[in-house]
Write a protein that binds this DNA or RNA. Structure first.
Length: 189
DNA sequence: CGCAGGATTTGCT
DNA sequence: GCAAATCCTGCGG
């Protein structure tokens, strides 16, 4: 399930000076060809073909000509569902991440947002199709712990955005700014 | 072969 | 709060 990825640890360039580890705190689920917002909506096109493959692989695409977004292919082979990684908290290699992010941002927001997450972890088009279940340049380590979970509507899309397919770790500041639902005045968050 | 739009981020007003 | 930056993908002719 999509929310099982919340709390998992993303490992990049393990064993090198560039090693970075981050805990996933926000994801967004995309269904198969029946989801108008999914890239799989138009069938197994060249770009979306990765999503039609086996689960556990990385699907990377370029958004707005400048930002990369990383997805984890989910579900059985052929179901074409995927989970977009929207935000994570750095647990190791903060200096490396900070150097990639030119501007000044709080430590908690270094990987906040799909585009920022890829920039901070140096995930690009060349990483498309990687198997995240085995050690490689990028892979996932499961973390079997319970975390407070919230869900809400998807963000940044124009179709079927109302479905409650976005999940995040309640109370984590790294949750992307655009994704945060309206907050009452004076709550300080 | 050409065109329209997109799972976003950032900086200035 | 709003608008620009920027390029790849999918569709129509």
């Amino acid at each position: 399930m999509a929310h099982d990825l919340i709390g998992a640890e993303l490992v990049v360039d393990a064993g090198t000076a560039e090693e970075v580890r981050a805990t996933i705190v926000e994801v967004e689920a995309y269904l198969g060809p029946e989801d108008p917002a999914s890239h799989a909506f138009r069938g197994p096109t060249p770009r979306a073909s990765i999503m039609f493959g086996p689960a556990g692989h990385l699907y990377v695409y370029l958004s707005y000509g400048m930002h990369h977004c990383a997805n984890v292919v989910c579900g059985p082979d052929g179901s074409a569902s995927a989970v977009l990684l929207r935000a994570a908290g750095v647990t190791r290699g903060e200096q490396v991440v900070r150097r990639r992010r030119a501007t000044t941002v709080p430590s908690d927001r270094l990987l906040s947002g799909p585009g920022n997450l890829c920039r901070g972890l140096a995930i690009g088009a060349t990483d498309n199709g990687l198997d995240l279940c085995r050690p490689g340049r990028v892979y996932l380590e499961a973390r079997s712990r319970e975390v407070p979970l919230s869900s809400g509507p998807r963000v940044g899309i124009s179709r079927a955005a109302d479905l409650p397919l976005r999940f995040w770790w309640t109370g984590r500041p790294a949750v992307s700014r655009n994704a945060v639902p309206p907050v009452k005045k004076g709550t300080g968050q």
